[in-house]
Design a protein around this nucleic acid. Structure first.
Lengths: 124, 124
DNA sequence: CAGCATCCGGGCAGATACTG
DNA sequence: CAGTATCTGCCCGGATGCTG
């Protein structure tokens, strides 16, 4: 491929990669999507428990962003105590295979990458 | 899939997804990898020019991280003025298809997502 | 040309306390 | 239970200036 069609990466606002990465590139989104992909439906505190290290605040923010992009669906049950369930939308499900591929790649290469990093560190 | 095998997502250090995303999930890494995937070999200032909005500092940081993970190769020509060329390693190339899939997905869904975001905004 | 060193501001993210 | 509100600290990342 020549260098002539590289301009597509330049326009940050309209560059699809950038647009998607700005959302799922954060610390937790992918994790939540994978989790919901496996579990189908989860309540707020279930997600919180599974991820463990995420704060309540960041989980709320993450879920809202994903909901705004229509990647997850939020079902509210008007009860006391309240009950809210989350699951993937069709669009969220369509993203899932791509993420799973990335997971597979990560699984295959993680060990090598870790050792590469270690080497890079000691040589500095 | 049951909830029983969700524990794999919990250990942040050894979770492959987390490990990969911690690296390529930043603002520029994916862009650089895609760029080098298209262009084969680029010099520092060529990358700088193509991305445009990246600062010199962040480009340096990004390239070093990618090099530490052995995703890109750095070839230094001992000349004056100096010349440094970057290209993908085999490992970097193996990641490329996964990223391209993500790009395709992004291309297909960007418009819908943007309108979903707009709706989410006006309803708040 | 290809960086490195330094300074600095804004926003992300954690901790804590409170609520329907 | 599933959040909100607020305060705060810290790190990311931009701008600038300097080097081999």
């Amino acid at each position: 491929m020549s260098k002539n069609n590289l301009e597509k990466y330049l326009d940050a606002d309209n560059c699809p990669v950038r647009n998607v990465l700005d959302r799922i590139g954060d610390k937790w989104s992918v994790l939540v999507i994978l989790l919901l992909g496996d579990a189908d439906t989860l309540r707020f505190n279930e997600i919180h428990k599974y991820i463990g290290t995420i704060s309540q605040k960041m989980l709320t923010v993450t879920l809202k962003k994903l909901e705004a992009d229509d990647l997850i669906h939020r079902e509210i049950y008007p009860q006391i105590p309240p009950k809210v369930e989350y699951n993937l939308t069709e669009r969220g499900k369509s993203l899932l295979p791509n993420l799973k591929n990335l997971v597979s790649w990560a699984n295959e290469h993680m060990v090598e990458i870790k050792s590469a990093r270690a080497t890079a560190l000691t040589s500095s």
